[in-house]
Amino acid sequence: MSSDQQYPYPYGQQQPPQQQPYQGEYPDQYGQQQQQQPYQDAAAQTWQGETWDTQYQPAASANANPYPPSAQAVYEPALPVIPPPADPAAVPDGYSAPTTSGNARLTAAQRARAEGRSPIIAPGMQPAGLTAALSLLLAGGAAIGPYALLVPLVLLQAVTAAGWFRLNGMWPARQGIALAFAGGLAADAVLLAVGRENAPAAIVGTLGVWVLLILVLQLRSRAGADERMSGLMATVASAALAILATGHLAAESDAVVVGAIAVAVAVVARALPLPGVVSVVLALLAAAGAGIAAGGLNDIGASGALLGAAAGGCALIGLRAASYDYPSRFVHMTAGVALPLTAAAPVVYLIGRALV
């Protein structure tokens, strides 16, 4: 095909209007009309003041800029609107049941202080009654024999393990509670196997093995560093208390009887609605008197006053620990019941061996 047949019109000559759908004003280098693409020109232009900043400035005509300047504006997508923070008064206070999730929040003691209340709340008369009942079971079991004493002792160790975890704000913590309780059972079994004469080695040895076991298990945990540290400390302390309660099984039976009765009297006297100092003094005097009375029934005699007062003082320490950090009713019914007896176990063992 010749150039005339390929290009029927001379160079630079425009085609008839009926054969050209769009007629621009600027021919290209090949003689063909460059069809303007308004949407492409609009995308290449930006508005600056009163003029258009483009690569070329076409002559003003009716077809040069078919879109108004408002259509030439660069489109910017709307950013997502971030809602303002909620009203602090409407935000939940976050004082649900504590867990091991590691979420940072105020402690119950801080809330109590912010509300003008004391973070120290004594368990009250009902937990004291349960402690007295458990103390009498311990005294009766000790009077019968070591295996009879083992039944209330196992109950004491279970309540101690559960109450300590809840007192530290870690709940649910079934694995930690089970591990601490298992430590107490292991100490009981070892003590029964080696006898009372080897009680210190049995208790300390079991505690050492259990601390090592807890460390190994915590190293395998996938929790955060802070949560692992909290879990480690709570588990070690709970296991130590559960194993420490084995001291009742290691002590002389007469000393267990005197110490358990003194604890029962002390916690009941402390729960009476009396001023703080008066209540403490009354509880110690009552424990000493109960020690004298219970010592008169066995070989301890009047020396039971010392054992009773010491056991009563340890019981008050246990009550104080169970009263701290604005505890819940569950803490009162577990730690508030068990800690007085658990804290008195070392005193019952040591003073009992010295007196009997």
Score class of each variant (00 low, 15 high):
A321E: 11
Q19F: 05
A287T: 07
G169R: 06
A104C: 14
A43M: 11
G224V: 14
P77R: 14
N168S: 09
I203D: 02
N298C: 14
A335Y: 08
M170F: 01
A143S: 09
S96G: 10
A78W: 00
L153E: 04
V81R: 00
A59V: 04
A240I: 03
L153Q: 00
I214K: 01
G124I: 05
V265S: 04
Y26Q: 08
I317L: 13
V236A: 01
M170H: 10
A344V: 05
A64W: 04
A269D: 01
Q175R: 07
P38C: 10
I351A: 13
A309D: 08
P92R: 06
Q29C: 05
L307H: 02
I121F: 00
A60L: 15
S3A: 12
G205S: 12
Y26S: 14
L185F: 12
V74Y: 11
G31H: 12
G31E: 05
H248P: 04
Q5D: 11
V216D: 09
S96L: 07
A104V: 15
Y11F: 13
E115M: 12
L191V: 03
V356N: 04
S61R: 15
P275N: 12
L350K: 00
A158E: 07
V151I: 14
A114D: 06
S118D: 15
V268I: 14
D53N: 08
Q48S: 08
A62Q: 15
A182T: 13
Y324K: 07
Y67Q: 08
G318T: 02
M1N: 06
Y95N: 04
S230H: 08
G140N: 05
Q72S: 08
W47Q: 10
G163A: 10
A182G: 12
P152V: 06
L167H: 12
